[in-house]
Design a protein around this nucleic acid. Sequence first.
DNA 1: CCTAGAGAGTGAAACGTTTCATCAGGTCGT
DNA 2: ACGACCTGATGAAACGTTTCACTCTCTAGG
Lengths: 335, 335
Amino acid sequence: MTTANIRDVARRAGVSIATVSNVLNRPEQVASTTRKRVLDAIAALGYIRNDSARQLRAGRSRQLAIVVLDLANPFFTDVVSGTESAVEDRDVMVIVCNSGADAGRERRHLELLAEQRVGGVLITPVDDGPGSGLDQLVRRGTPVVLVDRRSDRSNQCSVSVDDVLGGRLAGAHLGEQGHARIAFVGGPFSVAQVVDRHTGFRAALEGISTVTVVETSTMSIAAGQSAAGQIAELPARTRPSAVFCGNDLLALGMLQELTRRGVRIPEDLAIVGYDDIAFAAAAVVPLSSVRQPREQLGRAAAQLLLEELETGAGHEHRHILFKPELVVRESSSRR
Amino acid sequence: MTTANIRDVARRAGVSIATVSNVLNRPEQVASTTRKRVLDAIAALGYIRNDSARQLRAGRSRQLAIVVLDLANPFFTDVVSGTESAVEDRDVMVIVCNSGADAGRERRHLELLAEQRVGGVLITPVDDGPGSGLDQLVRRGTPVVLVDRRSDRSNQCSVSVDDVLGGRLAGAHLGEQGHARIAFVGGPFSVAQVVDRHTGFRAALEGISTVTVVETSTMSIAAGQSAAGQIAELPARTRPSAVFCGNDLLALGMLQELTRRGVRIPEDLAIVGYDDIAFAAAAVVPLSSVRQPREQLGRAAAQLLLEELETGAGHEHRHILFKPELVVRESSSRR
DNA sequence: CCTAGAGAGTGAAACGTTTCATCAGGTCGT
DNA sequence: ACGACCTGATGAAACGTTTCACTCTCTAGG
């Protein structure tokens, strides 16, 4: 299906292609009668700009990409929805990519994005070490904003949430409730978020209660279920009376499996999750959780990126740190 | 940041640009020593193909798009993950768009995709009437595959699941359990899925039990909660002893709100959902649900699209209909 | 020794825009 | 009446590929 091009439009309207282009890009510069003629021709032919040509000429594209760790986690879909709202009617397209926490997939995505010459990338990276796809992208000069991760390097913006504080909130809350033995469930400890949340958590409970750690290999519902098994099988005197889960998926899996085993939540064991995804509030035992401003995260990141695209070279990289907020629900409130 | 050119590569390798292009696209046609020289130059310069130019020349792009109704619904993220798996290492990029069930957003997305000259589109349409963005796209010759929706027109492929059968499975199951009064919760009835599921459901219960309908305006957790309120407040003698929800979000909202009001699931009231998203199985009272082959749906749709792209004009449109499967869990099993 | 053909490489056109410098024609002030 | 200026329109170059038709060189077969 060979689509009409700008030349066809020009011919039909009896003007030059430059004029058609002007109608499209600087309508005020062309006489209204000509403009009308051109617009009619466009409508008649069903002309649609060819963005490839546009980009080629412009050197850069009007596409942004967001690469998330796990599209199946509602946390990330909310972040995505935040960035989408930030670019609404900006004449920009957002490409959503899912790395699935796999470095290979991440690299492949970034390569394709580089070939597309995307204008910029929002990413929660799996691998941002030297030589990684991300590293190369940044070095090539593509604006990149890290999402949900503070950047160690200074050649990029980042938007993140204070995970240490989040952990501390959870810790303080459970401490106040008088729990003497508490578990932290999450992992792997190679990911910064886990470390930070754990650190804050521990700090808040220093000298107040003992904290045991159940390390998981992922942060999924299934991992939560199996961690629940481990905890339920501990001898009664060492079993914790509360757990803090590294995210809500873990917490939901935990909640289910413990209930199945006859452990009552929160009477026998209190649970606090992290992220405050919609499913946390909607659980049969509504889940206490450390809320992250998910949409805001995505929105702020997009704004930073757009800003960088506009200011260009003179841009100063910024690092935005949001504060999380504890939402107490039934799963951790002693009645 | 001006990136290296194919011309730069050619110069550095001491060959013509045609040869560089050959190395990239038909490596077997160039002598191995030259090839090596070119590859070295590419590596040294960090050359990256410019896809805009490539597309411009080729006339079409190597991008597919999938436009979903609601990215926050795990059902759709699973479908997306299915299509992603189908195009793995196909040297194709999938663009994920979220219409959010909003016709305006859908149209805007489709316009941008048309400008990109995407190779094809997978879509669960909000609006596919004449004059809609989708209609125009198809008319321009872009291959389109409908997802989770059977197509009335014959100029496109479609992949869907037999919703009437799904409704029937749910109905038969609840009928067998001896429920005399059953409610169907879902809506709006302007969407085909709702109508079909309801139809099948009713058909299975014909003459067995009475079915009342609670129509909702969306299929969200919140809608489920408010529907639960309505049902709980019915006088005891007309209150149903089982409900079938149009999707799992509704069912989860329902499950929570009813529990909160002291209704025991499944003893006082049985619940069956639809989709079988991960959160259904993971609920505290594991949710019975009509399972749709979510990833398969996405995968099959992508395969159909790829097939159409390869065969070109001679392509015969196909309509794939999957069969759903009832998964009985605690929420509907009388013990 | 001559020619056919294979193998390897190349020049140039084409894809569809945008934009810059230029031009035609008209208006205005002096 | 004449230059200065403005408005609106245009021709042509450029963006970075891919590909077609072509040339050149070398080998093998007769």
